[in-house]
Amino acid sequence: MPPHIYALATKAYKCLMKSGVSQCMLVSGESGAGKTESTKMVVAQLVRISKSASSNLVEQIKEVNPLLEAFGNAHTVMNDNSSRFGKLIEIQFLNSGVVVGAKVTEHMLEKSRLVHTSDRERTFHIFYCMVAGLNKYERKRYFLADRPESYRLVDPGDGTPVFTSNEDYQRYHEMMVDIKHTMKAVGFSEQDVDLILAIMSGILHLCNIEFVQEPESGQVIILNENEIDAASVLLSLQPEDLVTKLLANTAW
């Protein structure tokens, strides 16, 4: 039989307690193989069999993965919850076996997904969660329209709706509720949550900016300055500075 996730996690913990030497587990496989779910099970098992001085800490460790998935996972042809980044999860123990903390280091985030996705694929979950799950007050706060199709980043671009069904819409709506709950559970303040959502909204507005080249002068101008204004407020930038950066001819 293939290695059992719970047995491997338990073995790693026992080796740690016996030898005092840090243990490592590598979860690998092709897209859709179950790496994300396997990692969740490993973390859950390590937390379950170890001791902890704080039940709140245990819950925070468990909540980290779903939060990372919202910002780093996306729907692909192979997997509707595909991780588009790699991560190193470190769980820290005392010599007595008590869990005292955890650290997550991300790497290789697929940033290109912000500007281009392949057919039948989507950008990161968080943007669909926001256009489906923010309330009226939050939409007003972040200058967001009611129609998800108003935003190029999530709009399929072929005339079809952003969400393929009511179930699809509800999934992201509920995910947004869970994201806000999880942020608070892991220790984010209301100001932290507001800042994160403002930055994500700023990206939605940036992706809506339209450029056009004047036929006579050849100069490139921005058509919809309202998106510049919204993005500038949300990202704490001066509109003129943002325009200058966007229109600058930079050679790499």
Score class of each variant (00 low, 15 high):
R171Q: 14
Y169E: 10
M176R: 01
K136A: 15
T164A: 10
D158C: 02
G20H: 09
V220N: 04
S22Y: 08
E227M: 01
M41G: 02
V220E: 10
S165W: 04
T250P: 00
L235D: 03
K140N: 14
E110P: 01
S236P: 01
S232P: 13
E106W: 03
S201V: 07
I196L: 15
K87C: 01
F85P: 00
S189C: 09
G133M: 02
H116K: 15
L67Q: 03
G86V: 00
T36M: 14
G34W: 08
S52W: 08
G202Y: 03
S54W: 04
K180V: 15
D146A: 07
H181W: 05
D229W: 01
L153C: 10
E214V: 06
S118N: 10
E37Y: 13
L237G: 01
T164H: 12
E106A: 09
C15R: 15
K111M: 06
S232Q: 12
E214Q: 12
L26Y: 13
S96C: 03
L88W: 11
F124G: 02
M78H: 11
S96N: 12
M200L: 15
A53C: 06
V220F: 06
G72T: 08
I221N: 08
K245I: 04
L88H: 10
L237W: 05
N208C: 05
H173A: 14
L206R: 05
I228Q: 01
L197I: 06
D80K: 03
P239W: 02
S189H: 05
F188Q: 07
A248G: 00
L46P: 03
R171C: 10
H75R: 13
L246P: 02
N79P: 07
M78V: 10
S19G: 13
L68H: 04
Q219H: 10
N56D: 14
L57P: 05
G86P: 01
L8I: 12
E190N: 07
E167S: 14
V58A: 14
G72I: 04
G20Q: 09
M175G: 00
L67W: 05
L67E: 07
L195C: 08
D119L: 13
A248L: 12
S31M: 11
N81H: 07
M17V: 09
P161N: 07
S22P: 06
L247I: 03
F93M: 05
H205K: 08
M25R: 15
A12S: 15
E214R: 10
E138I: 02
Q238N: 11
T244L: 13
S55L: 12
H4T: 12
E214N: 14
A7R: 10
S83R: 03
E210V: 14
E69F: 04
H125V: 06
F93Q: 14
N135P: 01
V154E: 00
I61V: 15
V220M: 07
Q219Y: 04
E190Y: 07
A248R: 04
K11C: 09
V21E: 14
L94F: 11
V154I: 13
K11F: 13
L144I: 01
R141H: 09
K62V: 12
L197A: 05
G20F: 01
T160L: 06
A44F: 03
